[in-house]
Design a protein around this nucleic acid. Structure first.
Lengths: 208, 208, 208, 208
DNA sequence: GATGAATGAGCATTCATTCAT
DNA sequence: AATGAATGAATGCTCATTCAT
């Protein structure tokens, strides 16, 4: 019954979209399953047919988003050869993705913590994953002698924390300004933080 | 009736302490006013006499904590003359304070977001305040020519974001390791990020 | 605050009465906590203040009823000296109590099983208790040589089972006839079952 | 299409068997139609094709069981000539059947009440039927002068009630002991209850 | 000031039943 | 005949907040 399957899958996705909207509008706790049912033009029973409970539905959203970020980041990284440029690419892509998906960013950076204890471990894992990604390329850079030996694990955390803060500030500011404009300065700060020579940071000498 | 006033104030504080424990144990949403009433050996009515509602009680906690952080930071800053050392002092003190008050850190960095929309603006303000503190000293450093001109507002955000991430990771890790050991490396990264000369970062040449 | 206590206790009892009515009207499962709240002129929250959940409320009812039966039976038994007469008294009193409290009987004999697994053990205990009561007096009778040695535990069960069946049939019959008229014949059957001589059963020789 | 008919009938039976298992495992209310569908390797739609609703499905089970009991009892009764022995046979067979089909007994004696109001009349009818069966043979016995004239309708009820209690106690006891061992003592009690001479009850004089 | 009983809106979840395919 | 996705009414329970005493 491919037709039925398609329809079911379509509804599945419609629910995910609706949930994204509702959760990021109202926050995890204030979002009622009823709201999501209405928004996805489904019945409450239909919702529960596709997702066993509210928590799982929210987790599905986070996982979906992690997948998106990871895929984009990996694609961008693959296009670069130089390890520093790889790390830069990861930073840039995540910033861009958040910039163009404010709703998702809201979910990922704010609501995920707000959703309660159960999600903390999951979030910690996401943060670790991003940190590890940066770290691996910084390690390459160290190996190649581009930057001095250092605590690259911490550097990964610092990069993600900085990104996180910039995006969160943007999320909580009303009205939101252009997030992407922050990228060059952020890039400069973070590159400098790991000891990338100034010459490499400002190729044409355009110190801000 | 100064005695009664004392008693009232004493109870006020007992409630705050109890609330701190309960909120950081259970999280904002899962903490019931009942729990706090019991923990503070008061009645529910008593609670509501001192605080008009749950939100306000939680806000009082955040404000108290902000006050503590601010006081400590300002004291530490006042002891330094050099602007870079002032900025460093702020960073160090906040890290130390969180390290020695895990419960407060939990509340401030995790639960505050979890508490819902109503707190977002407040949190944004806290973040801005810390960022501005760092920024002001970095601006002095720029003025003195110690570091190059740059987007010091962003730098302030980056410093706080980095700190935030490091502490949060520590909060969510089981079992928690020693947070303060991270300080030297974090300091180095952040000083370097704003262009402090390596010679100043590692005075005796002890590159890690 | 004895006044408040009184009021609270009064409400407690009003809830129990309302619950008795609703449960025996609709049965355990079809009785909604809402129904009971309305019937007891309370709010749902008020209900839950007095009883932590539906099950506990129902159990309180059963316990209350067990207490009533036990008290009446013991009082009646205490008035008799002869062990056979004591056993008879228990039988008679329980029959009478059920006859005059149809609602309670419904709850005790029908709904208690219908309420589900969780109550089975409790019901089994009630049955055992009644059986043991009969048994103890039959044992006395055996000891005194009034009736032959026999499996008095089983006899206790038989007596209660017989009573149970007669009452249940009456409960389920529409319209209900006079239950107490059944007593003499039931008494005769049960006395004969344990070997009480016919002469003692029909003192004046009034065989039915 | 006899083959299809067979298949349908086969499925019909598979559903009944599955329902028996599920209902007696979980009880009427906690048994979900979904559970039964899975257990019978059918779909929910399939279930509803064979039985219009949950109630009807459960009734079908009860009817099936009543039929089994009736058939066995009648067969056993037919083998006896003496009316007392006929009544005894009915008693013995029902006890044996319950003893060897614990699941069915559970359904018949416990869950049937738990299933709610709608089943009460049906159950009453079953009880009446068994009572009437006993009664008819006791009436014969009275007519033949084997036992004294008495309220045989009540006696039928007493016999069934006693049996019911013994079996139910066994059902609710953990772990279940051997039910059939109770038969001789139960028989003696019940025969004596209707006035069967002791000599007939213990042919070889083996008073327990 | 303090108490704690009472309120009631709110919500996640279940499940018998339906029906398009 | 059979499937299983969808429906939606029903319900037990929670908890911030109020208020008579």
């Amino acid at each position: 019954m491919p037709i039925e399957q398609d329809r079911s899958q379509f509804r599945h996705e419609r629910i995910l979209e609706a949930a994204t909207r509702i959760f990021s509008q109202k926050g995890y706790h204030d979002a009622a399953m009823d709201d999501i049912a209405v928004e996805s033009r489904t019945s409450k029973g239909g919702l529960y047919f596709h997702f066993p409970n509210k928590q799982t539905l929210f987790l599905a959203l986070l996982d979906q988003m992690m997948g998106l970020l990871r895929a984009r980041a990996e694609a961008a990284i693959a296009e670069e050869i130089d390890p520093i440029r790889k790390a830069e690419a990861a930073l840039r892509v995540v910033l861009q993705t958040f910039a163009s998906h404010r709703t998702l960013a809201q979910l990922f950076l704010v609501e995920a913590l707000a959703a309660g204890r159960e999600f903390h471990e999951r979030m910690a894992a996401s943060h670790r994953a991003f940190g590890a990604l940066i770290q691996s390329h910084l390690d390459d850079a160290v190996r190649q002698g581009v930057i001095p030996p250092q605590d690259t694990a911490l550097a990964g955390q610092v990069w993600f924390g900085a990104l996180n803060e910039v995006v969160t500030t943007w999320l909580l500011s009303e009205p939101p300004g252009p997030l992407e404009e922050q990228y060059p300065a952020l890039r400069a700060l973070l590159l400098r933080s790991v000891g990338v020579p100034t010459a490499r940071i400002f190729p044409a000498g355009e110190e801000s």
